[in-house]
Design a protein around this nucleic acid. Structure first.
Lengths: 332, 332
DNA sequence: CTGAAAGCGCTTACAG
DNA sequence: CTGAAAGCGCTTACAG
């Protein structure tokens, strides 16, 4: 009935008459244990609802089966969507996840001591806004770390990224093929590699056709920022024909700004985003965007992490996955 | 450089020349330690970046400083929004959070053994769809548990709820005061107390005015379900003037269905929801709704939990917080 | 195939 | 005010 009364390996040992060592080995299917002994131990353990205390096990094995998930601001729904998939994928491997939220203004470096206390097996860093010092976790503290959609500084950590550049280029090509000429870009946070790479790809795609970028605004990766960016673009002496927003959540704000100003989408201005968050497919927005292959991305990240947990001497690696253009009503 | 090289209390002990016991006491500010000793220990610990190994500490204190957060389907953005606030509030208390995701079709009962392994201090259960057996965690396994927006079966666990009934009633009153007569309700999952209580309140509010419910549809608490419910209502021989959706995410789908059918909102049909998720305030939806006081709700939940962690003999308690009507363009 | 013993890194009575 | 010792619940060489 009480927490302190959970059965221990000693309980099983006393009931079955074999030693704790044997209980431990029997339960983890160690080959040297006789079938008869194993069966008896397993039966008693099951009957008592016994499971080895994960804390004690972690202390001796130096493996906790828990990985840390580090995120910053979650107002972009893309993060929660990743989280849900991640939990599903980890459950398949019997791994648990501990959350670490870095509030605005703080940095990964600030919580490293806390992180280190918990004997985590590894870390996934999912915020594009967090400093590159996240790589320190791996390099200086021996904690296997994989960055998601973030370029590791000094190659000190692993990373899995959606090919942001290719995605930006794809959008440019899509617009240009449809004869759009006055192309605008709405940037996310200036310091993030995702925004810069998506922009670089977009620029490359435009320049390949001999044209130049028509206008640029900044939306800081937020809905409200996207809304303001939309108003900024509409205030220009001449309006763009199409806008590529560096992520979806800004694109939604942008679409609402256009709607508020009576602009017809896509007839007057076409809009495309990046991520394919759930809201992108809601009829109110119906956003053309680059769909990030989240499951693949996370699967690769988990694989990379699992390999480093198994062998910490493995060198860092950076992997790319490719997003697909999803055409919807906002640009078609 | 390596994980196994993290300094231990023994490291500090050797450097400072005091015993491990003294190191431990000095670091936690035990009053019996002399100021001089404490300062020296603290200085060395800081210099080495030492922090007590949480796993070892948990093993002896039987306190981990970690609580479990149990959620089901996260497609309703209300859950991620809670999660972010929760992380902020827990950080203030130096508590960590471990996530447990129950996939559709599974139940809390299925992960109880896993949960129990981790020496969690307590549990917060945040899914309205999970069985009432969540209360077992507290009652049968001694794990302090607080349900969020869920009525505990048999009073075996604590709970904090938004006053769902009062919210439903408030919406009814709001509609009736504006002279709306043909009121419809869109239900969430049939088995959830949130949907039932919101409906009961709505019905009570309607009946208080001598009228009756005009129409009812079911949206299963999803965006798509809300969309279908909208089409269902429009297919009726006579249309309602106003619809109360048991949560926001369904209301968004509903609004998109109305828009798709060319229905003017709120002129022809007014719409109200419940929760006040972020998307409710996006201009595309501009949804009138009951704003749940998330921070208060979570703060109360944490308090209830902290009390039970400190004294497990405390009886279960159920607390209510009150939502506020937030009037936006979808019903005004 | 099995067991006794040591040890993971802490905390906490118990002495002094 | 401080230390030696025991112990939290496991796992894992080491013997046999």
């Amino acid at each position: 009935m009480d927490k302190s009364r959970l059965p221990t390996s000693d309980t099983i040992s006393r009931i079955t008459g074999v030693s704790k060592s044997t209980v431990s080995r029997a339960l983890k299917g160690h080959p040297s244990i006789s079938a008869a002994t194993r069966e008896r131990v397993v039966a008693v353990a099951r009957e008592l609802g016994y499971a080895p205390n994960a804390v004690a096990r972690s202390l001796v094995t130096r493996r906790s089966g828990v990985i840390g998930f580090i995120i910053g601001d979650m107002s972009n729904p893309f993060y929660p969507e990743q989280l849900e998939r991640l939990l599903r994928l980890l459950a398949l491997r019997d791994m648990q996840l501990m959350m670490f939220h870095i509030p605005p203004g703080q940095d990964v470096a600030d919580i490293i001591p806390v992180l280190l206390q918990y004997q985590l097996d590894g870390c996934l860093v999912a915020s594009v806004e967090l400093s590159s010092r996240a790589g320190d976790l791996g390099a200086r503290h021996g904690l296997p770390t994989v960055l998601i959609n973030r370029i590791p500084a000094n190659h000190h950590a692993c990373a899995v990224l959606c090919n942001n550049r290719a995605g930006g280029e794809r959008i440019a090509r899509f617009f240009v093929e449809r004869g759009v000429r006055r192309l605008a870009f709405v940037a996310g946070k200036a310091l993030t590699s995702t925004s810069r790479d998506r922009e670089a790809g977009f620029m490359a795609g435009i320049e390949a056709t001999g044209t130049a970028l028509f206008a640029r605004a900044v939306g800081d990766y937020t809905f409200e920022g996207g809304y303001r960016a939309g108003l900024d673009l509409l205030a220009l002496p001449e309006r763009p024909d199409a806008v590529f927003s560096a992520n979806d959540i800004m694109a939604l704000g942008l679409l609402d700004a256009l709607r508020a100003q009576g602009v017809a989408v896509p007839a007057e201005i076409a809009v495309a985003g990046f991520d394919d968050i759930r809201a992108a497919s809601w009829p109110a927005y119906d956003l053309t965007t680059i769909t990030q292959p989240i499951d693949t991305l996370l699967l690769r990240a988990i694989d990379l992490l699992a390999q480093r947990i198994a062998d910490p001497t493995l060198p860092p690696e950076t992997l790319y996955v490719t997003g697909q253009l999803t055409i919807r009503g906002s640009a078609c």
